[in-house]
Amino acid sequence: MISSLTARGRLTLLYTALVLAAGLLLLALAYYLLLRGGLQLPPPDPDGVTDGPLRGEAISALLARAALALLVVTTLAGLTGWLVAGRILRPIRTISGTANRLSAENLAERVPVCRPTDELAALATVINSMLDRIQRGITERDQVLDSQRLFVANAAHELRTPLTTMRTAIDVTLDGEPDRDELVAMAGDIAAAVETSQRTLDGLLILARSQAGPLRRAPVDLASIAAAAIDAADQTALGAVTLHADLQPAPASGEPVLLERMAGNLLENALRYNRPGGAVTVATGTAGGHIFLRMVNTGPPVTPDEERRLFEPFVRGARLDAGGTHDADGMHDADGMRGAGLGLSIVRAVVTAHDGEIFSTAPPTGGMDIAVHLPPALATPVPG
């Protein structure tokens, strides 16, 4: 029966039982002292003789009145215990009510922290900290899910285009009696579509790898990585622009493969979206407690809206053709193959995975100024 009581009822019962036990103990002690003669009731008569019956009646009367007083005190103790227990348990009820109102869609409410600081205040603080962690986790989960849904939709759209190109080339070529030249042209169209699909899939794998979790970090030097990216760049594109390199030591920690891809994509973007006779400046170094890699290029003007969207997957900037005019769709490389539009989105994902920041500016004269800031290395970097 006791187990079915509420916490307030059990506390009240405990308080009342303690008061009753203390009262019974005092009553028993008083009765013992009276029997032992420690108290003279009633006082002796003038002849010094105690009236036994009167003494017994006095003790009985005293015990009856003491029992009545104990009953009153016990009742008051029960009422007081009920009120005190309610006041003590009020923060618990507040915590329970807050927990009942919380859900996956509503995690903004927090448990009030009472003063002064005690065990219940510490419990409320711990619960609020737990709710903060849960809310951050749910927010990050929703962001990842939204990003994945959008990414999968864009990827499906991008991969559908080369597949359609291949199917159209096959259907048109095999519609009649194709000669060797038509078959060679069909093979070239299919090869170009396959290469486009390959680049898109490679970009998807790089993005997935950068978002898979904690990275395997090693000491690296961004100057060496930038130099390797320059060596691996398209020599035809390098010949069409003037390259300025200011590669100061930039020791950082990270995964070399991802950082190499980041630098390569930045340089490829700076070369691809440029103008004949333009320039690209590549700089690395240390400033303000962080390591930086900066690339500045000339090129067509970029609006603020285009600048914000350039770091999203499958978004491409406008290019200038050999005549200095904008390419119609801004999606073709020098060999005529469509770009995947994943370059800067991969750069952003790699920078985020390395706990860094990326800053971009679109000068009014055209081109882009992109700077990557990474935390400094914790150990001596290994040369590239």
Rank of each mutant, 00 (worst) to 15 (best):
103 S>G: 15
333 D>A: 14
244 H>T: 14
177 E>W: 02
371 A>R: 15
105 E>H: 11
90 R>A: 15
49 V>H: 09
61 A>N: 12
295 M>K: 05
199 R>Q: 15
41 L>P: 01
264 G>Y: 01
305 D>L: 14
307 E>W: 02
366 G>E: 04
249 P>W: 13
340 A>H: 13
373 H>L: 14
274 N>D: 09
109 E>Y: 04
111 V>I: 13
191 A>W: 01
307 E>I: 06
329 D>L: 14
282 V>K: 02
100 N>F: 07
271 L>A: 01
35 L>V: 11
108 A>E: 14
104 A>N: 09
188 G>N: 14
202 D>I: 08
100 N>P: 00
261 R>V: 08
88 I>E: 04
64 A>F: 12
157 H>D: 15
104 A>Q: 10
376 P>Q: 13
97 G>V: 12
141 R>H: 13
53 P>M: 09
377 A>K: 00
184 V>G: 00
123 L>K: 10
237 A>T: 01
296 V>S: 06
238 L>Y: 00
272 R>Q: 12
328 A>N: 10
268 E>R: 10
277 G>Y: 02
169 A>S: 08
41 L>Q: 04
88 I>D: 02
103 S>I: 07
250 A>Y: 02
261 R>N: 11
381 P>R: 02
228 A>M: 06
356 G>D: 04
204 L>K: 02
229 A>H: 01
66 A>S: 15
109 E>N: 11
332 H>K: 10
377 A>T: 10
187 A>L: 06
384 G>M: 06
62 L>N: 00
70 L>M: 11
257 V>T: 12
120 L>S: 13
134 I>D: 05
152 V>D: 07
70 L>Y: 03
233 A>P: 01
361 T>F: 08
58 A>C: 04
107 L>V: 03
341 G>R: 03
248 Q>M: 09
253 S>V: 07
304 P>R: 06
127 I>F: 15
118 D>L: 04
267 L>W: 00
47 D>C: 06
184 V>E: 11
241 V>M: 01
259 L>K: 01
237 A>I: 01
335 D>L: 07
348 R>W: 03
59 I>Y: 03
180 R>H: 05
150 L>K: 08
147 S>K: 07
168 T>D: 12
75 T>P: 01
57 E>W: 12
143 Q>V: 08
293 L>R: 03
87 R>E: 06
264 G>T: 07
